[in-house]
Structure formats: structure tokens, C-alpha cells
Design a protein around this nucleic acid. Structure first.
Length: 621
DNA sequence: GGCGGAAACA
DNA sequence: TGTTTCCGCC
């Protein structure tokens, strides 16, 4: 049973994301990890390298890559055909997709894959890197897969590389680590070396840098805990119970202790300020990084304003902001909730992503065990070719009953406030709601795949605000400027606060504002009282639009049964997880799907939940 | 080349 | 579960 007061939205990662074995460096390395490893190594740049669009890479030497992979997995018979099959399985997982028209070219869905598991992202400046290298959002981002064990740290892959070298290395037994296929315990990352040496020198912090090429020229907002120490953030707790097999500095596994200072995804990292500060996720960054995308602060501001307004006006979940950097959702000042403990047990098992990063340095006690649960889930696989073809007709009658869910509340504060508040008047529908965003994603993908047939584009990713916000793309998130009602300049801060939603739950407006424009505008009611359209009315209009949108998007929503079924399944499972406090708390999260901002289609459901949330959040205002 | 079903495997 | 292997099809 889900705690009705807990409106926290969770993201759930797929099973594998929680498995330590799935982590790079583990003996169960997964192909995509391996690919990333290769990509981050210059030695392999002639075999595989970032190229083209953001996250796009080209396998220059399929045979070699296959060989390397085979070596890694002790599958001598591996070949590109097989490897590619494995890669194709990632399509459904949305980890990868094919760049159509380009041979051996694939693209990571970094927007959805936030490598949460590898919070060792260091914003250090990177050297020239292809624009496609961007898996990580911020500038000069390099991150490497942390070694699971000392031996792994030491193990190297130097041999793997060149064919010539390779052979000589075939049986190399890296220092202490086993890499002999015979015992099936090849543990070493064949690609570990160079980086290791370099990183090792720098100590723990430096040990985790260097994976992705730098891309953002500007100061990175990301700084999980690699690289320069963030004075505001507590450094990762010292390893408590070293996990031999864990690739993480701190075992994310429950029971291994020190769970609460896990690794937050860059996308999830939060500043220690009292506000929820969203750090850009890869997807976020891409917009600004994309070669095809240019964005100036003003535009961004505008966009964000619009978005803010949308969220604000329609009571969409503030988490929508999490898609954008520098957005702060100020929390109403109120006495510090005295429920940390409560909050905690609400989530049961130690949270994987504990909120070490959300702790407030200055805030002190309050921020302590902030239950800022994050859960991530990959989106449902996109429609298969078959399903797409067949399914297009069958439809999406149940568009409202999407299955996947992926959303999150990034605000621990919010959680706290919610917790500290009395029983909500509004019924919260976590599960169903959560899914809405997933659908959005699906929609994005399908649209892209079917309409544009252009994988090189933004690919159903929440890449760029522009892409999402300003583009005329059907997948555009919230109503944008083209919507009179949403015209930021017009109403952003003039919306009357009158959300008679949720059975009389007095709904105050959330103090949402852009960092750049602190507070004031957040005033629920326009000072001038201009253009105060009753929210009800607005909602009504919105509803109509939504309906229409839904109809239009019906086609897109025609997800194949498979997907849907899975989604529903997962949704249910997730639901129970949420109920029991978060289920797997390993916190070993590899990927994070950042759902795009809610789309109109989903506005209604989103709205519902958001309303609840906001209502709770501001009931005291 | 690329896709995806199916079955097998660990 | 995540491939690996095989294969027919486009």
C-alpha cells in the first residue's frame, strides 16, 4: 500500500540497472558498458568512436569490436553479426538505437540513460572531443567506470587493443585479476588501463574521471563527487563495508552499510541549497551541446519561463523542471519537518540514491536524512517493427492506461513538506500518473521513428529544450508559446490561484520560479490581477486540448501489446515497490530515463497528480 | 547491412 | 536477464 502522503514519484530502473553485476567492471559486463568503455579510450578510436550526433558512435571496425567483445566475454565465436544482434536488443531497452542510413552507426540514448551508476563524473575539462561524445552532460566530462575491486583497478586492458597486442594479451593475466576465459571469470575490464594509471595517481576523486568526452564549454553543473570537491556537498562517506565485487566506491547494496551516501546521478545531483536545484542530465546538456542546436540564455530563460508557467498554470508536477538546469523550485519556508525518520521508513529499505547530495550543508539537521527517493525506470521498449506495423491500427484505446512510468520528484524538501503536512485532500495516483511521462517518451520515439525516420535527430529524447519546447514537434512537451493560454509573457505570473481540484483541497500555488528570477514572480496571484482566468476554465480548455491531442496521438500510442503489457506489469510492480519503500535499494543505478516534460496529451493525468502534489506542497501558503 | 523472432545458454 | 547463436527476410 502506498502511503497516501507520499507523493513521491519514483523512477525505476530495470532490473539490470540494480545489479551490481551489471556495472562496468564487473565480470558480467554488459555490452553497452563495454561499448562505452571502448568509446572512452582513445586507443580504440580507430575501432569505435564517437561520431556525428550527440551520443552517436560508429563502429569503424566491426570485426575488431566483435573480437574485443568476444574476448571480454570469452566468446571466441563472437562476430559482428552476433554483436549487432545484441545491440539491437538495446533498441527495445532504449539504451541504443540505430542511426539509420549510417553503417555501423548507433546512438546512445543518453537522455534516458543517465549513467546514474557512474556518478564519477568529473566535470574536469576534457580535451577536444567529438561532439558526439557527450554522454555526460557537462563540460569536459569524463567519467570512467570505477573498478570493482582493487584488482580491477589495477587490471588493465592495454592488451586488448591492437590486434597484435591483443593476441599477446589474450591470456594475459592482469595483475591479480583473472581474465582467463577458461574459468569464466574474466573479470578485468579489458579496457581498463590507461585511464587507470592516470586516474590512480589522482586518488579517489580522479580515479573516476575520463570516460566521456567533454562537451560543454560552460561550467558544469555536474559535480557529483569526482573531481573538484564540492564544499557544499559532503564527500562520499568512506567505504564502510567494501564490496569486493562492487564497482562502487561505496556499496550501494543494502546491507553493505553506508548506503546513504550513494551515488547520485548527475542528473539527480542536487545542490545543497534549500531549493531543489536540478542539475542537467545528459539529456539536458545535449540541447546545448548539440552541434545542431544553439541556445542562448535568453531563449532558455524564455523557454523555462514558458515551461514554468505551464507547470504553474496547469499544476503540472514541478518535477517537470527537473529537465532543466538551474531551475529551482523554492520551497515555502516552513518549519523544518520533523519527520525524517518517518519519511525514512516510509521508503523502507535504504534508498539507493540516498540523498547524500541533497543534504543541506548549512541547513544542517534538516537535510540530514532527507528522504529524497529517486527511482528510475527505463521506458518501455519502443514498438517493434512488427508491432508498429500491426499495432498502428489497434490502438491505443487505452492511452490513459499507459504502463510505463517514469517520473520523479527531485525535491526532498517537497517530500518533507508533504510529510509534514496533514493528510492530503487529494487522492494521489502515483502509479498511473507516473506512467504518463513514459508514454510521452514512447510517443517521442514512435513519432520519430515513424514520422521522421530520422534517428539522428533528437530522437525522442529530451535533448534540447528547443527541440522539445520550441519545435513544432508533436512530442513537444508542454504547451509552448504557440499556445495563447500559455504565453509566458502573457500569463506566466498572472495566473490566479484557484485550483479547485482534488475535492476542495485548497490549492495554493507553488512557488516555482527560475533561479534567475527568484521568487517574486511566483506569486500565486498576479499583483495586477490581470487576465485571471479561472483555473477551472483553464483546465477545461486544457482538457479539451488534451482530448484532441490524445486523439491525434492515438496512433502514436498504439503501443504493441507486448510493450504495454510489460509496462503495466512494471507499473504494478513499481507500485508495490513504492509501497514497500522502494524495493531494491541497491542504488546501483546505471541508467535513468529522463522523461521529457509532460506533453499536452498527458497533461491531464499529470495535472491530477501535480495538483495533488502542489496542493500539498503549498497548502500552507 | 540491418532487423527481429526463436531458442539456447549461463 | 542479457546475451549468444541461428536464421529468414527486407
Amino acid at each position: 500500500y502506498k502511503n497516501p502522503y507520499d507523493t513521491t514519484v519514483w523512477f525505476a530502473f530495470p532490473e539490470w540497472a540494480y545489479k551490481p553485476e551489471s556495472s562496468p567492471g564487473s565480470r558480467q559486463i554488459q555490452l553497452w558498458h563495454f561499448i562505452l568503455e571502448l568509446l572512452r579510450k582513445e586507443e580504440y578510436h580507430d575501432v569505435i568512436a564517437w561520431q556525428g550526433d550527440y551520443g552517436e558512435f560508429v563502429i569503424k571496425d566491426p570485426d575488431e569490436v566483435a573480437r574485443l567483445w568476444g574476448a571480454r566475454k570469452c566468446k571466441p565465436q563472437m562476430n559482428y553479426d552476433k554483436l549487432s544482434r545484441a545491440l539491437r536488443y538495446y533498441y527495445n531497452k532504449r539504451i541504443l538505437h540505430k542511426t539509420k542510413g549510417k553503417r555501423f552507426t548507433y546512438k546512445f540514448n543518453f537522455n534516458k540513460l543517465v549513467l546514474v551508476n557512474y556518478p564519477f563524473i568529473d566535470m574536469g575539462s576534457g580535451r577536444g572531443v567529438p561532439q558526439s561524445a557527450p554522454p555526460v552532460p557537462s563540460g569536459g566530462t569524463h567519467f570512467r567506470f570505477p573498478p570493482s575491486t582493487p584488482s580491477e583497478v589495477l587490471s588493465s586492458t592495454e592488451e586488448l587493443r591492437s590486434p597484435g597486442m591483443f593476441s599477446s594479451v589474450g591470456r594475459r593475466m592482469a595483475r591479480g585479476s583473472v581474465s582467463d576465459c577458461s574459468d569464466g571469470t574474466s573479470t578485468n575490464s579489458e579496457l581498463e588501463e590507461a585511464v587507470g594509471a592516470e586516474d590512480r595517481v589522482g586518488g579517489p576523486e580522479r580515479a573516476f574521471r575520463s570516460l566521456l568526452p567533454p562537451r560543454m564549454p560552460h561550467e558544469s553543473l555536474f559535480r557529483v563527487y569526482g573531481g573538484a570537491p564540492n564544499p557544499g556537498l559532503p564527500r562520499p562517506a568512506p567505504r564502510v563495508h567494501p564490496e569486493p565485487l562492487s564497482p562502487f566506491p561505496i556499496s550501494p547494496l543494502p546491507g553493505s552499510g553506508g548506503l546513504l551516501a550513494p551515488t547520485l546521478s548527475p542528473a539527480l545531483s542536487m545542490t545543497p541549497t534549500p531549493h531543489l536545484s536540478y542539475t542537467p542530465s545528459p539529456s539536458m546538456s545535449s540541447p546545448m551541446l548539440g552541434s545542431h542546436f544553439s541556445f542562448n540564455p535568453e531563449d532558455m530563460k524564455h523557454y523555462l519561463q514558458a515551461h514554468t508557467q505551464s507547470v504553474y498554470n496547469y499544476h503540472l508536477s514541478p518535477r517537470a523542471f527537473l529537465h532543466y538546469p538551474n531551475i529551482v523550485i523554492p520551497q515555502p519556508h516552513r518549519p523544518t519537518p520533523e519527520k525524517p525518520a518517518t519519511a525514512h521508513h516510509l521508503h523502507g529499505p535504504p534508498m539507493p540514491l540516498s540523498h547524500s547530495l541533497s543534504q543541506q550543508p548549512g541547513g544542517g539537521e534538516e537535510g540530514h536524512q532527507h528522504p529524497s527517493p529517486f527511482k528510475f525506470k527505463l521506458q518501455p521498449p519502443p514498438l517493434g517493427r512488427k508491432q508498429r506495423e500491426a499495432g498502428s491500427s489497434m490502438a491505443a484505446s487505452s492511452s490513459s492506461s499507459s504502463s510505463q512510468s517514469s517520473s520523479f520528484t527531485g525535491s526532498s524538501q517537497m517530500t518533507n513538506s508533504l510529510l509534514s503536512r496533514g493528510p492530503p485532500n487529494i487522492k494521489v495516483e502515483p502509479i498511473s500518473d507516473i506512467e504518463s511521462e513514459e508514454d510521452v517518451e514512447v510517443t517521442d520515439i514512435s513519432e520519430e521513428d515513424e514520422k521522421n525516420h530520422n534517428d539522428e535527430d533528437n530522437e525522442g529524447d529530451i535533448f534540447t529544450p528547443t527541440a522539445n519546447g520550441n519545435s513544432s514537434s508533436p512530442s513537444a512537451p508542454l504547451p509552448q508559446n504557440n499556445n495563447p493560454d500559455d504565453d509566458p509573457d502573457d500569463e506566466v505570473f498572472k495566473t490566479p490561484a484557484t485550483p479547485p481540484i482534488g475535492g476542495g483541497g485548497g490549492l495554493a500555488f507553488p512557488l516555482i520560479s527560475l533561479k534567475s528570477e527568484p521568487g517574486s514572480q511566483a506569486a500565486p496571484i498576479s499583483p495586477g490581477g490581470t487576465r485571471c482566468i479561472p483555473l477551472k476554465l483553464r483546465f477545461k480548455r486544457r482538457w479539451s486540448k488534451d482530448q484532441k491531442m490524445e486523439a491525434d496521438g492515438e496512433r502514436d500510442e498504439a503501443e504493441d501489446k507486448k510493450v504495454r503489457a510489460e509496462g503495466e506489469e512494471e507499473a504494478e510492480r513499481r507500485g508495490s515497490e513504492v509501497e514497500n519503500g522502494g524495493g531494491r535499494g541497491e542504488g546501483v543505478i546505471l541508467g535513468l530515463m529522463l522523461p521529457p516534460p509532460p506533453t499536452q496529451r498527458r497533461a491531464s493525468s499529470e495535472l491530477q497528480r501535480a495538483t495533488a502534489q502542489l496542493s500539498l506542497e503549498n497548502s500552507g501558503c
